[in-house]
Write a protein that binds this DNA or RNA. Sequence first.
DNA 1: GATATTTGATATGGTCTATAACAATTATCA
DNA 2: TGATAATTGTTATAGACCATATCAAATATC
Lengths: 173, 173
Amino acid sequence: MTVSKTAEKSSGKSADPAKGRKDATEVQSEALQLGELSEQLGYVLKRAQLKVFENFLRCMASLQLTPAQFSVLLLVEKNPGRNQTEIASTLGILRPNFVAMLDNLESRDLCARIRSTNDRRSHILVLTDKGKAVLARAKKLVATKHEARLNELLGQANREALLAMLSKIASEF
Amino acid sequence: MTVSKTAEKSSGKSADPAKGRKDATEVQSEALQLGELSEQLGYVLKRAQLKVFENFLRCMASLQLTPAQFSVLLLVEKNPGRNQTEIASTLGILRPNFVAMLDNLESRDLCARIRSTNDRRSHILVLTDKGKAVLARAKKLVATKHEARLNELLGQANREALLAMLSKIASEF
DNA sequence: GATATTTGATATGGTCTATAACAATTATCA
DNA sequence: TGATAATTGTTATAGACCATATCAAATATC
């Protein structure tokens, strides 16, 4: 330990951290400087991702779909007749962790596991009629409430450029 | 359940999922179609974030610093004399979860808690000399191995545009 | 000076992620 | 063919991360 243990005063101000509810005679503790942090791609990327997921969950509150569940429904709809391993692996979900997820979707009658006749080890995944209906409503919510918000924040062109760069990072980094 | 339980054949092909190591007479199972998934900002954002963190950890392997730990060191260096609550909250870390994190950094002699003389409840955070040295090396690694990789993938201008858009999302979404 | 608030800390639970292992089934190949 | 290896879905389990309630010590408030 190379640091003196006798503390200098933290600052001349009061102990109130960052809420600014002292009266006007007190200089409220100024906000912290992010410094190089705001230039760190990983940091900003993570914060943005949390905000986007948060907004997604709010938009989907009526359907009770998480981003991960939505991605499963989308992928199963686009690729009917695939088994759990295939769906899970393309989503980056490990097979063991995919089981509980499917249990959930199946218990809500959104998708179904069907024992394959080709390979009786595997379960073919399909959307139920209810699953298709829910997914259709989910897509509309995402388009009108979620992605629309993005467009009005960034503009259509910027939003597409952002998507392209993120895709490049996701696939080539 | 509105789906017939008698499975149709998953496809005409073999059971080999996506690895393509059957011989040439077999049509290997084609890759799944991502479809609308590749247009979902949240999905691409999450995948990109995972890749970036993964690369960060590889670049920092010699220093054993996670992105979160790096952000703490950066913030403490930039804001000496702040207490745990202030540092944690600006990083979006809850106070209870920040304790173990600091225990780790302090046990490695990278930062130190100093009891404040102003407010004897709070712990002032500072970097030790070793912490400053390690952070300096970490910054170099990030700049030369991590961010440099981003620049060569996207180009300087695009990288800055990406950062700007992500910052906007993180703060205004 | 009595009450409320703040700080760091502990305990705890939930979710997400990662690995090992198992039974049933299928593939491989001697 | 039949013995062995590999695959599929599953369970169990452990770790990381995140969130809430609660506590003692210290401080603020009135």
